[in-house]
Amino acid sequence: MTQQQLTGWRVVRGRLETAIKAPSFTEAVAFVQRVAEIAEEQNHHPDVDLRYNRVRVRVFSHDVGALTARDTRFAAAVDAVVEEAGLIRELERIGGTVITIDAVEISAVKPFWKAITGYRETQDDYLDDPSGILPSLWFQPSVERREQRSTTHVDVYVAHDQAEARVQAALDAGGRLVTDAYAPGFWVLADAEGNEACVCTTDLPEAPVGDFLLR
């Protein structure tokens, strides 16, 4: 095991991710082209999302189901392009959303959601959008059916150093804290009518600038 530090990247849901802002659409496209060239040179291909002048890049070693030195090597090469082009990091945009469904019998519930969404099974108790754009579904084991409380909530994943600000913003917007007993792993909050959501961090919330262990 080795350790690598990449200050412009964060680990969210087991994937290494960064987000940048370019001065224009054309320059964002040029950045994506350079990322593509790096991917071809290293034979290691990321997920890239381009929205006008903003780009998000995620990388993960699918063949071993973990982050590896290939991912950090790729990220370091992308960092060099970011620095050379003078692009702006937007770490607050790193993350994603998971819709969580509590179920006593996951095997009886998951096929319905797989059929109705057209999602695919990617890991235990998860269904993911094949395009990688829409929120994932996660089926959380429950010991009993709840009649008076919704069994569905939203998990919002953010970078570890953005979590407390996101929690505070939700509280300032009229939400309430249900529990912070599991922080900094996750905070449970609710809106004014009791609908719940969790703000979740990376797997290593204690890392100050994005340290993580690699296989």
Score class of each variant (00 low, 15 high):
55 V>D: 05
56 R>P: 09
56 R>H: 03
57 V>H: 12
60 F>A: 04
61 S>H: 10
62 H>L: 06
62 H>S: 13
67 L>Q: 03
67 L>I: 04
68 T>Q: 15
69 A>V: 14
70 R>I: 10
73 R>E: 15
74 F>S: 02
80 A>N: 06
81 V>D: 09
84 E>L: 12
86 G>Q: 15
86 G>H: 08
87 L>V: 12
89 R>G: 01
92 E>F: 07
95 G>H: 01
98 V>T: 08
100 T>R: 14
100 T>L: 08
101 I>T: 07
104 V>K: 15
105 E>Y: 09
107 S>W: 11
107 S>C: 13
108 A>N: 14
110 K>D: 04
111 P>H: 04
111 P>D: 03
112 F>G: 12
113 W>I: 03
113 W>E: 03
114 K>W: 00
117 T>C: 08
118 G>I: 10
119 Y>N: 02
120 R>T: 12
120 R>S: 05
121 E>I: 05
124 D>S: 14
128 D>C: 09
129 D>E: 10
131 S>L: 13
133 I>K: 06
133 I>S: 07
133 I>E: 04
134 L>W: 02
136 S>K: 05
138 W>G: 00
140 Q>K: 09
143 V>A: 13
144 E>M: 09
146 R>W: 14
150 S>W: 12
152 T>C: 13
152 T>P: 07
152 T>Q: 14
153 H>W: 15
156 V>H: 10
156 V>K: 05
157 Y>I: 00
160 H>L: 02
161 D>L: 00
161 D>A: 02
162 Q>M: 00
163 A>D: 00
163 A>T: 00
165 A>S: 12
165 A>P: 02
169 A>L: 02
170 A>V: 03
